[in-house]
């Protein structure tokens, strides 16, 4: 019985099953706090604990699923290409806006976390917090962070940004549809884009573009900032 519980097929079925159930719950309730991952992570953690499956075995069994993260990042080059039409007309302003936002975003995380005395591994996991999860995890891993922390932080930031974002834009008096979509996509990745789509088609498209641009810029800026500021 025990070796069976640790076999690849059992773990894969368990992971996909829990994920589908959480997805179903999310679609039924439509509560943004019941994000499928925020539900399925604790459920899976508890099930694994109850079945006495060591985390190492679980990680080994679910390797095929985790492997898909790399190809998912690569495929975002296609999404970027699809939205490229929007970039052409406003290329300079969009790239500048995302660049400045990316730089201030990373620097503010580093300085605040250092002020609270966080160690390098934690800071490296927080730096890519505004980037879509698969890219954020590989950036965190590269700079000595913990991909698991990056994954969860990114989801929570996305939910937070998606809720708070529209209010901030309203208070700032941002009328430009491109500016709104860009800000939501840059700060809150896919979850910000979902909100931007509710605001309008232009906002949604620009927001989708912002995810890719933000991902590439963060991947370049994080190691550069590391060199300038030191670990």
């Amino acid at each position: 019985m025990l070796p069976l519980l640790r076999s690849e097929i059992f773990i894969l079925t368990l992971v996909i099953g829990v994920y589908l159930a959480a997805l179903w719950l999310f679609r039924k309730t439509k509560l943004s706090l019941l994000h499928p991952l925020l539900v399925s992570i604790p459920v899976l953690a508890i099930v694994i604990h109850l079945l006495h499956i060591p985390f190492g075995e679980f990680e080994k069994g679910s390797r095929i699923i985790s492997f898909m993260l790399g190809p998912t990042v690569v495929v975002m080059g296609y999404l970027l290409y699809e939205q490229f039409e929007q970039l052409k007309a406003n290329a300079i302003s969009i790239i500048t806006a995302v660049f400045v936002g990316c730089l201030t975003g990373i620097l503010s995380v580093v300085f605040i976390a250092r002020y609270f005395g966080a160690d390098h591994a934690l800071i490296a996991s927080l730096e890519p917090k505004s980037v879509t999860t698969p890219i954020a995890m590989s950036i965190a891993e590269r700079s000595g962070g913990i991909p698991s922390i990056a994954a969860v932080v990114v989801i929570v930031v996305g939910i937070f940004g998606g809720i708070v974002g529209p209010f901030i834009l309203e208070r700032l008096g941002i009328k430009s549809r491109i500016a709104r979509g860009l800000a939501l996509g840059s700060a809150a990745h896919g979850l910000g884009t979902a909100r931007a789509m509710e605001l309008g088609a232009v906002e949604g498209a620009v927001s989708g573009l912002a995810i890719g641009v933000m991902g590439i810029m963060t991947a370049i800026l994080v190691p550069l900032i590391e060199i300038v500021l030191g670990k």
């Binding site: 992971v15 994920y19 699923i65 898909m68 999860t133 698969p134 995890m137 994954a151």
Partner: peptide, 9 residues
């Protein structure tokens, strides 16, 4: 795809 890593939290 990032669910297994998320459990690593």
């Amino acid at each position: 795809f990032f669910l297994p890593a998320g459990v690593g939290i």
